[in-house]
């Protein structure tokens, strides 16, 4: 996989993550679960900024940024706040894996950006009720 391929794959994942966060936010009550609502809102903003940056990085690498799908299939039922939180946690786990793959495929400012974002997604897992791990984004080492 080339760096451009890795950037495009990360961008495609970010399109899906943004869509999913939008759905999760819509199913979360700001008054009933304010902490979860705030965590989802902050994550949505972070992923939106990440998507925008990835589009620029793809263009700088000479590619045409992949477009978002019209809709994405969500796994499982998202009726309870615990299910919403678990889905958000899963998004961040997958994001770390994808971003560390980009770390491996890049250097310089792209690697630095990908590492910063991977670290943010790993740390945000704790905010979403996840446990600290030993090999976030590199599960084969566990």
């Amino acid at each position: 996989m080339s760096a451009l391929d890795a950037l495009q794959a990360t961008l495609a994942d970010e399109h899906a993550a943004l869509y999913t966060y939008g759905v999760l936010g819509a199913r979360t009550s700001q008054s009933a679960t304010p902490a979860l609502y705030d965590a989802l809102t902050a994550a949505y903003r972070r992923h939106r900024s990440r998507r925008d940056q990835l589009r620029l990085l793809v263009q700088e690498a000479g590619g045409q940024p992949v477009a978002a799908a019209a809709a994405y299939e969500l796994d499982g039922r998202l009726l309870r706040s615990a299910q919403v939180q678990a889905e958000a946690l899963e998004l961040e786990v997958a994001a770390v894996e994808r971003l560390l793959a980009l770390v491996a495929q890049s250097s310089g400012t792209v690697r630095e950006w990908a590492l910063t974002e991977a670290t943010w997604s790993a740390t945000w897992q704790v905010e979403l009720g996840g446990a600290a791990g030993t090999w976030p984004g590199a599960p084969e080492l566990a």
Partner: peptide
């Protein structure tokens, strides 16, 4: 170390260690 590594695979491993360290600090 991650940013300076010539090997991409090594950079990925060090990136995971940095992410783990940040997770534990947050916890």
């Amino acid at each position: 170390g991650c940013l300076a590594a010539a090997s991409g695979d090594l950079a990925r491993v060090l990136g995971s260690i940095a992410a783990s360290t940040s997770q534990h600090s947050a916890a």
